[in-house]
């Protein structure tokens, strides 16, 4: 039994590292957007389009990193569109997000038909296996550079929100548009850039899906990762460092179902497979309260008002 426990524990650790990266990028992007006072639910579409364009460009150019860049740029175009539309009066950012989600996935499926078959060059992992002796851990420590970039980005964002002028401006815009305007900040412009940058990150998250793990492009590639990432931001309390933890937790929960079955526990696997969603809901219920507004919540955000 203890063997089985170790296997499941290691599998969940490895799963956390493997599966978390797209969640991490999308949630960091969404965190930035939401800090500026907007919510972009369309990142699911951005993620899928990013995955498609990364695979397509990697195949056409022969370089996976060019693919990653293309995914980021495509993502920032979706973000820019969202940012530009939402500055119009009476337009709901949530609704635009849902529309962008539909449009992004549809467009990606449309353009991506021709790239399901070809094999594109994939991203390589950094092998940190020499650090440990356990063979299972050796494999778990073959980690994609994007994971480390994501970690570094989280730290930079966390530090930046607190200590830089740009961070301050973004936070101020998100907390009170009136104050920001009084300080001479162009609220629309800040939100435009925050959404564009957020889209870039979501696109890169998609590139990870198609170019590393699971590492192929097809229409079933994303099973709602982009949407879940939006939920992650809320229970990370808009803290980039907490986003890392949330993404890892979500990745580990996703590995639970297959890991349990691999050691012979298969009763009720449907529920283990839904573990990430059940867990997210449970955490949201446990940590929300109607008595006080959420700590760290940007005051301008439509979903927390």
């Amino acid at each position: 039994m203890s063997d089985a426990l170790t296997t499941v524990a290691v599998a969940m650790f490895a799963g956390a590292v493997r599966v978390s990266t797209p969640f991490l990028f999308v949630s960091l992007g969404e965190c930035l957007t939401e800090k500026s006072g907007r919510i972009n639910l369309g990142l699911e579409g951005t993620l899928v389009f990013g995955a498609m364009s990364a695979y397509a460009i990697s195949y056409l150019s022969g370089s996976p990193w060019v693919g990653v860049l293309a995914a980021g740029l495509a993502g920032s175009m979706f973000g820019a569109l969202h940012g530009a539309i939402c500055r119009l009066p009476k337009v709901s950012d949530i609704a635009i997000g849902i529309a962008m989600m539909l449009f992004g996935t549809g467009f990606a499926f449309f353009l991506g038909k021709g790239f399901i078959q070809p094999t594109a060059p994939r991203l390589q992992a950094i092998d940190l296996g020499f650090l440990v002796s356990d063979p299972q851990m050796k494999v778990a420590l073959q980690i994609n550079p994007l994971f480390f970039i994501g970690l570094a980005l989280a730290v930079v964002m966390w530090w930046g929100f607190a200590n830089t002028r740009i961070g301050l401006v973004v936070r101020m815009t998100g907390d009170s548009a009136t104050t920001a305007r009084a300080m001479g900040v162009s609220v629309d412009l800040v939100r435009f850039f925050a959404t564009t940058a957020g889209g870039f990150l979501a696109g890169v998250g998609g590139a990870f899906l198609s170019l590393f793990y699971p590492g192929s492009w097809n229409e079933g590639l994303s099973s709602g990762q982009g949407l879940m990432a939006v939920a992650l931001v809320i229970f990370s309390r808009w803290n980039p460092i907490a986003c890392v933890g949330a993404a890892l937790l979500f990745g580990a929960a996703g590995a639970l179902g297959p890991a349990l079955q691999s050691v012979g526990i298969s009763q009720g696997y449907h529920f283990f497979n839904a573990a990430p969603h059940i867990l997210t809901l449970a955490i949201m219920i446990a940590t929300s309260s109607s008595k006080r507004s959420l700590k760290g919540a940007p005051g301008e955000l439509s979903i927390t008002k």
Binding site: T7, A11, R18, V19, V139, Y213, P214, L221, S262, V263
Partner: peptide
């Protein structure tokens, strides 16, 4: 379900 299929393959290899 590509991600879960990849997870399953990894879980089996780990086991």
């Amino acid at each position: 379900l590509p991600v879960r299929e990849a997870e399953a393959a990894n879980a089996l290899a780990d086991a």
